[in-house]
Computed example of a mutant assay.
Amino acid sequence: MHSIERHVDPGNYRKVVGRFATGVAIVTTRLDGVDHAMTVNSFTSVSLDPLLVLFCAEKVARFHDAVVEAGVWGVSVLHASMEDASRFFAHRGRPLNGQLARWEHHRGDSGVALFTGALATVEVATTAVYDGGDHSIVVGEVTALATPAEGAPLLYHDGRYKTL
C-alpha cells in the first residue's frame, strides 16, 4: 500500500461528514455482570445473507474493549424522545453502576440491555473486528430483532439532534 499525502483539514472533514444525517442508537454489551453502553451514529446494515450489521467504536473508549471481549452486543435505535439518553451515553467517564436505571430497559436473549422505548432493537454476535484508524469496525451476525415502539427517529445532522 502506498502512502497518501494529506491535504484535508480534519476540522473541515468533520464539518463535511456532519452534513450526512444519521440515525442515533445506543449500543450495549455485558461483561462479567457489568453493563456497558455507548451512543453511536455509526450503525449500519452490511449484509442480508448472512444477516450482518456493524458499528464503529473508538479504540480509547472503555466500551471498545468490553464489547470486543464480550462478543455480543445490542443496538437500540432511538425514538425522538430519547435525546437525553443519547447525550448521557455519549459522555465519557460516567460511573458504570446504575447507568441504565433512568431508562426502562429489558434483557435480550444474549443478556444485553435493550431500551424498551427504542424504535428497533437488534441483538448481535461479533463475527469480525477490523482496524479503522482510531476506531475499530465491529461486525456481527444478527441473532434477534424487535420493534418495541412506534414513532419518529432521533437524528443527528450538522452537529445537532433533530427529528422528522
Rank of each mutant, 00 (worst) to 15 (best):
P50H: 06
P95S: 08
A61M: 01
H135L: 09
E104Q: 15
A80N: 11
H135Y: 06
S45A: 01
H91E: 15
Y130N: 07
A113C: 09
H135M: 11
Y156F: 15
S110Y: 03
S136Y: 08
D158N: 15
F115R: 09
S110D: 13
P95D: 08
K15Q: 15
V34R: 04
A101Y: 00
A25V: 04
D109S: 14
E58I: 12
E83K: 09
A61Y: 04
G74F: 10
A113K: 05
A118D: 01
N12I: 14
V122L: 00
G117K: 13
R30T: 12
Q99T: 01
I4N: 12
T39C: 07
V72I: 14
E83I: 07
H7L: 09
E69N: 11
D158S: 15
H64T: 09
D131M: 00
P95N: 04
D134Q: 09
S45L: 10
K162D: 14
H36M: 07
T44F: 02
G133D: 03
G159N: 06
N41S: 13
R160S: 15
V77W: 05
A57P: 01
D9A: 12
G74K: 00
A120F: 10
V112M: 10
S45M: 07
G132I: 00
R30Q: 10
D84M: 07
H79Q: 06
D158T: 15
D131G: 13
H157T: 14
T121Q: 05
H64G: 03
P153Q: 05
T126D: 02
S42C: 02
S81Y: 00
E58V: 15
A37M: 01
L154K: 08
P148F: 08
L51C: 11
S47G: 02
T28I: 05
T147C: 11
A21I: 05
L52C: 01
Y13E: 05
T147H: 12
G133L: 12
T143S: 12
T147N: 07
H64C: 12
D131Y: 03
A70G: 00
S47V: 02
Y156L: 07
V40D: 00
T22A: 04
R87I: 08
V112S: 07
V68H: 05
T39V: 11
H106I: 08
T147A: 13
R87L: 12
M1W: 11
V16T: 15
V112W: 08
F63C: 02
L154D: 04
L78I: 10
M82P: 11
S45I: 03
T121V: 12
V24D: 03
V27W: 00
T127M: 01
I4P: 08
L100Y: 00
R92F: 08
V75G: 06
D84Q: 06
A149C: 13
L164Y: 14
T147Q: 13
A125P: 01
S47Y: 06
M1R: 09
R87T: 11
F55E: 04
A113H: 02
K162F: 10
A66W: 04
Q99W: 11
F43S: 10
H64D: 10
T121S: 09
V46C: 01
T29H: 00
G117L: 12
S47N: 11
A113D: 03
F115S: 04
V72M: 00
F89R: 01
G108I: 08
R62I: 13
A70W: 10
Y130P: 09
H36G: 03
